[in-house]
Design a protein around this nucleic acid. Sequence first.
DNA 1: CGTCGGGTTGATAACTTTCAAATTTCGTGG
DNA 2: CCACGAAATTTGAAAGTTATCAACCCGACG
Lengths: 243, 243
Amino acid sequence: MTMQQSPLVRKLSSFVGLSENELSVLDIFQRHRRSFPAGADLVHEGQTDATAFVLSDGWVSSYKVLRGGGRQIVDFQIPGDFLGLRSVLFRTADHNIEPITQVNASEFGASDMLKAFEASPRLAAAVLWSASCNEAVVVERLVSLGRRDATERTAHFLLELGARLKLVGLATKEGYRCPLSQYHLADALGLSAIHVNRVLRQLREEGFLTFRNGEVTFDDFDQLVKAADFDAAYLDYDGPMMK
Amino acid sequence: MTMQQSPLVRKLSSFVGLSENELSVLDIFQRHRRSFPAGADLVHEGQTDATAFVLSDGWVSSYKVLRGGGRQIVDFQIPGDFLGLRSVLFRTADHNIEPITQVNASEFGASDMLKAFEASPRLAAAVLWSASCNEAVVVERLVSLGRRDATERTAHFLLELGARLKLVGLATKEGYRCPLSQYHLADALGLSAIHVNRVLRQLREEGFLTFRNGEVTFDDFDQLVKAADFDAAYLDYDGPMMK
DNA sequence: CGTCGGGTTGATAACTTTCAAATTTCGTGG
DNA sequence: CCACGAAATTTGAAAGTTATCAACCCGACG
């Protein structure tokens, strides 16, 4: 009997070939499926009893708020991503996690993870790899915030999102559905919403991409990639790299 | 016979209590000790045969270069940190690694890691935890680049470095030795070296801190913490959190 | 209808960069 | 010990990018 491949399984499989047994161990992570409404934090900074999740459906944002009230979105999670892995490894959660859309996610705790690691060291490596992928995304955004101007940054971000969504079948080279507001973009890109608006207009008028009505359309993908200096290498994991 | 505690052991011990056996397994990571001169890249972006290291002595920077020639330093590593963990998990290295000072580091490969994971799932959790600490640092810098102005950003960074160094006994509340140039700071903080210079002058003149002659001195630690909105929670791991 | 969360636009202000140039520091050879 | 050159630091002035403030528009919704 073939098991329905969850986004998580699909993703981890692209790193290590998983045995039947390992697949069933992975189930530990996906037992307690729950549903959450948009807007209400799943985890908030400082929380000490946080659990982790595997996202199976919907969009989520991880963010921090600053003293002055500003906020910085660290990353968006899409189906197949872990949520709050850091929060369970640390004593206290170091960031907030908020669903942007209605969301389905499976809850698990640190002990579940350790159990999985005991059952299969290869799974441990796979989880570490997955966390590394996440870090690679954060690093690339760091580079954007540090050294790219608003236009490159925005284009790069929208391309990256497209590449990630494509991996789970939610985007094509043409574009994708995107529930983010310009405020979300602003908080992720370290810009004001007003400036994001101007940048989006410019990108649209110059024929690069259209961000509108919850839909991102790449009007000229190749030019865009060039303009944004985008290289998907850090997202590119086709085929298991550990036999 | 008591083993000399390496920075790595000290660090991982603060997450999980390690058994005699696990300590000896950890040795896998520290067998091939090597020495490297400042300036010559240990790993360069795109390299496909990269190995990983545990840093035991000296300072290292991880950075990316952009099309336009600019560079963004993602993080500095200090003794006890892993180098290039991502590079061995990915097919190709996604960033450059350059020693800032003369450096001692132990080399290991993906297979060594898997061997260690097989010997002890708790070690796997410890490595994952360590990677998460790293990510937390990167995330905090992301927040700085996105939402803090040059002054807060600089102060925050220098405080963070101090906190990290203190954990391995290389800093006090008074300050620490710091081999970074203002160019290093600029490339890490997403600023121009010239502006970094102005900011440092301002911080010095206002009695917050002095960055000079390879030495960072906190002239008013408490005020500085307040001004930078610095909260060391994300670095604060005293006492094993897994029994 | 009236409000509310997006989205859009213009004008002005703030922060940072860039360019140009002087000064200091530091390692090295005389 | 001093001189010299390279690298790092420092400063001023002008230009550029992005934020802030103040409106206005629009569609969804009670």
